[in-house]
Design a protein around this nucleic acid. Structure first.
Lengths: 137, 137
DNA sequence: CATCAACATGCAACAGGGTTGCAAAATATT
DNA sequence: AATATTTTGCAACCCTGTTGCATGTTGATG
């Protein structure tokens, strides 16, 4: 409750019930969530558009980041305290082909790739698909 | 011309002008293309739906594969001869933040990542964003 | 604790991506 | 040239995401 307000304030955001609810949903569910997921969970309380705008704001402020897989766009909490200026740009995501959940894998770096001459890489995004621990029987 | 027919036949596909045009567009442009890109180039000749279905067919037959970046979904030719059964599942894509083009980087493997216990990876997709050789001045 | 500017929300409307069903057209085969 | 099979175009539809504007909230100030 109180920590939600703190987090929002820390990013220069006013506290509103929608922002608190979206943020606490990201914290409790740990996997990446799409707008549709959030709408399913909170849609009776808030307008679709408000949820879109909340996500956009959180993105800009560095509270969440985009997660892409072959089904579309999702969002997940930034592990580090990212800010408007400085985003952590080195992500590994694992999508389970069984349960469909996508999770960030923390504490793991993407190994260096030596690109051909002339490429100047700025950030890396690795998506691994397979079976997650929960689903392997 | 003739090789297009051969490629289509090789995948058990009837030759139609739409398929030939889409395929030859992928061959001439080398970067990844979205449905919208193709519609822009060929849309006067073919219905949107036909282009969607062509892409879907090519995907299933292993002629093209999906490419994802933060802007959405695109498609690119499979380098190897993939088939319905066997897809090459190890892709590195480079998206230029300057010109917006996304390209496959061939002949480069994704280095092994040691995942936490319990994860069973099946395929890997690495998206690198930065500045491409053409745009670095 | 009342006031007020700045900001957030809901609503309506819209644009784009993507899918499905069905009738008409084109393909490959004989 | 005739036929079965596959493709196409069209209409209709759903989902995602955005914008403009009027109304409602927030938090800072006196």
């Amino acid at each position: 409750m109180e920590q939600l307000r703190e987090m929002l304030k820390g990013h220069q955001l006013r506290t509103t019930t929608c922002r608190e609810d979206v943020l606490s949903t990201f914290i409790s569910k740990k996997n990446a969530l799409s707008h549709g997921d959030l709408e399913g969970m909170l849609g009776e309380n808030y307008d679709r558009v408000t949820i879109y705008r909340t996500l956009k704001t959180f993105l800009e402020k560095g509270i969440i980041h985009k997660v892409l897989d072959d089904e579309g766009l999702r969002y997940a909490l930034c592990s580090q305290n990212c800010s408007e200026e400085k985003h952590q740009h080195d992500h590994i995501h694992f999508k389970c082909n069984e349960c469909g959940e996508t999770n960030c894998i923390e504490n793991l770096h993407i190994p260096a790739v030596k690109l051909p001459e002339g490429y100047m890489p700025e950030n890396f995004n690795l998506l691994i698909q397979g079976i997650c621990p929960k689903c392997k029987s």
